[in-house]
Design a protein around this nucleic acid. Structure first.
Lengths: 244, 244
DNA sequence: CTAAGTTAGTTGCACAGTATCACTAATTGA
DNA sequence: TCAATTAGTGATACTGTGCAACTAACTTAG
């Protein structure tokens, strides 16, 4: 670690430090569409982007937060009440231009919530609302560089959905294969072949059947749960030798 | 953005801010092995982890650095002299425990250098040295949580190599297909089928032939360059419909 | 000049996974 | 009882890769 002024390297307390925040992109699927939770910026004259929509987030609290992920979980619980959804870091963005109050760095996470757990239409913290995502964007204008952050999160989600079990985290514990396929289709915004999907899901050992079916006005569907609830499953990739 | 003390939300200058650093994991391939550039921690009593090896990096300079990536490029050039190699963010790690001087957040990037551009065996800044990577690790003990950061960078690299053109950035502008295949094999630490590799590379339109061959003690090899030198190419994934 | 050695590059076939599509199964409600 | 609807299966074609044997083009040793 090199420093311009020698002093700085001796006493890190005098080093200028950026404003440090965490923002969380919270996804859920409502009404056949991917939605993201957005909050209202406070409407005080001191706050930048007052009254606009923004990603839930805020300054790291060096007393409360042991680490960045803890900070993200805290903000997530404040806004949704949900404790342990799927949470993954997207990356960090920092620079002089992104916040009028000065050099700042934000750490972006995305979370996946089952619609059943996502605060019922309205939300616990009243300033938060679900917005549908249409071609990588949301219809309202966002504060700071949050449009860019949101786009990156969507990109990451879409990308990863192609070869992982991520969409399963958008469902409650018990679900049918059609439910699961539907989540893939909603996130990827394209239809998937039923037969290929099923063989793939079984081959990856993604789910296991439970002793229940879902009844309805037509043929009942077998219910499943995740085989490894805590781990995401990767579908086979390429460049893999046939013999192990 | 919510605050504990109302004051804080009005004057961000009084908000406690973490120490903010950028660390760069610089990869190259030397002698058939993946190597990473490590520097020596200064040997002054004021610095933590004195005399140990660490990833090149250091505090963000809010005067010099417009943004995090700029900071990473600056540090990269200081240590290697190289201006525009492949550079990608791995993620950020922040918390109370990772630096004895207090709450800190680091932003980790990885860079890929052609062996030809990587400072000749020795290095410009004399405290930096190349270390070979053996099963996700380096043989020396690293300062801070840099072992973890390095592992994450290696993981990301390995993962992405499976389905992208990344290893091409470990080669000079002109290379043979055998060179390219060799880079894949070194990074993935396994051999790849020549024929399948070639059809894959051509199908993805990764390279284009130039009007030169490399002579040698045996059959001369066609030289190629990247088709899209500025973009990484993704190999086809799954869940893709056959008809477009 | 030729044969051996070496690396570059091609070809053909086997095999696995998935796309596509047509089919069967199980329920409700008219 | 039949139409409608969704669940689930099966058969086949296609595509990309694994694998192995082949041909090609050069250098060097004799």
């Amino acid at each position: 670690m090199e420093m311009t002024q020698p002093l700085a390297s001796f006493d890190p307390h005098v080093i200028e430090r950026p404003l440090t925040t965490v923002d969380v992109v919270i996804f859920t699927v409502l009404e056949q569409r991917l939605h993201v939770l957005l909050v209202l910026r406070p409407d005080t004259p001191e706050e930048p982007f007052k009254g606009m929509r923004a990603l839930p987030g805020g300054f790291v609290d060096m007393q409360k937060d042991d680490d960045l992920e803890g900070c993200a979980r805290r903000k997530l619980q404040q806004k949704t009440g949900v404790r342990s959804p799927y949470l993954e870091q997207v990356g960090s963005w920092g620079g002089i231009k992104r916040d009028p109050r000065g050099w700042s760095a934000t750490h972006v996470y995305f979370a996946l919530l089952p619609a059943t757990e996502s605060p019922e239409d309205g939300t616990p913290s009243s300033d938060a609302k679900w917005f549908p995502i249409e071609n990588q964007r949301v219809s309202v204008k966002l504060a700071f560089d949050h449009a860019k952050l949101l786009e990156a999160a969507i990109q990451r989600l879409r990308n990863k959905v192609e070869y992982t079990s991520l969409p399963a985290y958008l469902l409650p514990e018990e679900f049918t294969l059609s439910d699961l396929q539907h989540m893939y289709e909603v996130v990827l915004e394209r239809s998937i072949e039923k037969s290929a999907f099923r063989t793939r899901v079984f081959a990856a050992n993604l789910v296991e059947p439970i002793d229940k079916v879902r009844a309805g006005p037509n043929r009942p569907a077998q219910l499943y749960r995740l085989s490894q609830p805590k781990e995401i499953v990767y579908f086979p990739r390429t460049f893999s030798p046939r013999k192990i």
